[in-house]
Amino acid sequence: MQVAGQFLATVGWLGLALIVSELVATGIYLVGQWLGYRLSGSQVVLVAGFRYQLAHVNGHWHWQRPLTSYPHLVALPPTDAKRFNYASICFSGGLFSLLTVIISLVTMAQVTVTFNLWLMVVVIWIWVNTLKAGQLLPMMLHGRPTGALDFKTARASNAALTAAYVTQLAAATTVMTGSVATLPVDAILMPTGGDRQNYLVVRQAWVTLQWGLQHGLQLPDLLAGLDRLAPSFNTLPPADLAVYLDATIYWNLIANRPGAQLIGWYQDAGAQRLRQRYTPLTQYKLQAVYTWRVDHQAAPALALIDRGLIQAKRVAATTEIEWLKALRTKIQTSGKD
């Protein structure tokens, strides 16, 4: 019993060390990101943790609890795009983590440590920070591209680098105002000469679709622009693929174009898991429009919309609230025809 108790105590301490190491290492990584943003002239507008986030909305900081989150920062890039230093944004967090690893190794080398519990704790600490330095842990846990991949993708063309700037501007604007409607028109124009399978360009296409819808542009024309991208699914990170599938399926169903391919994408079990993990908030309106257009059931669709509105209001997702209300009106109006 005594041996079993010691074993359990050891496992408990190592588990606690892993949890604390992950939390502190994440904090170090975020501090590095913050410094990188500041050096490039960007202003941080959102600090997200594992389940909570602090967002700068309408001039004030607010606590929010989204349906899903991962540790990251969102920053408003400098007005002068020439100051936009994507390298500092992509690598500053990893650089801080790497410095932590080096300092930890040097410190351990100066101290004689026998093989005991504390040595294992130090090993866990160094290993977690090493994973953070290469962004391997976030990549494995969240399916999002690493900073190195983002930097490589942005360098592929001038269009990709422009898309990196625009999508960061759009993300920050969405945090602060709830939509991308306030972006200037020159920010959402798709640049020429870019690889249509470049996921940064695909991100900008989604921004263009959002902006166009909020300014009353014709949906068929916007969808045609999105369809022309036709990205290879093998080239898109899971998070970007989920957004692309979500937007393509939803807006085509709204336009009453329930093609066989779209239905197949919606029903595919793998695609469903992908969308539910990376776009959980938009799943309410996607399921609602599918229930309405394909299953021809208005009442369950309206119930899904009501649930989506509750979640959208929790995180001040203005655009999502507007689209859910518009869909509800559309369904209710169709039932009276």
Rank of each mutant, 00 (worst) to 15 (best):
Q64R: 11
Q283I: 04
S334W: 03
K330F: 15
L223N: 07
N234H: 08
L18W: 10
A148K: 11
Q210A: 13
Y266Q: 07
T279I: 14
A205V: 02
L169R: 09
G5F: 13
M140C: 13
A303C: 07
T177K: 04
L137F: 04
W206E: 07
T130D: 03
L131H: 00
L119R: 02
I254F: 04
A133M: 08
I305N: 00
G147K: 03
P184L: 05
P78L: 15
R51D: 09
M176H: 08
P300C: 09
S157A: 05
W127C: 01
V57T: 09
T182G: 00
M176N: 06
K313N: 04
R83H: 14
V57E: 05
T248Y: 01
A17Q: 05
T208K: 10
A298Q: 01
D306S: 15
V44P: 08
A172K: 09
L14S: 00
D240H: 02
L46H: 02
I249F: 00
I321G: 01
T282I: 11
N116A: 10
L324Y: 14
S232T: 09
I102E: 04
Q267D: 10
G225T: 10
G194E: 12
G259T: 13
I102L: 08
A326V: 12
A81Q: 15
L136P: 11
P300R: 02
T68F: 14
D227K: 08
V207Q: 02
R65E: 10
L54G: 00
T174S: 03
L222P: 07
Q311K: 02
K152R: 07
I19L: 14
R144E: 07
A109P: 10
S92L: 05
Y165E: 04
R277P: 00
G193N: 01
L189R: 02
Q64A: 07
L76G: 03
A303Q: 08
T192S: 13
W323P: 00
W63M: 11
Q210F: 11
A230Q: 04
A148M: 15
H62A: 09
A230K: 10
A156R: 07
N116C: 08
V122G: 01
Y250Q: 00
Q110I: 09
V74N: 00
R275K: 13
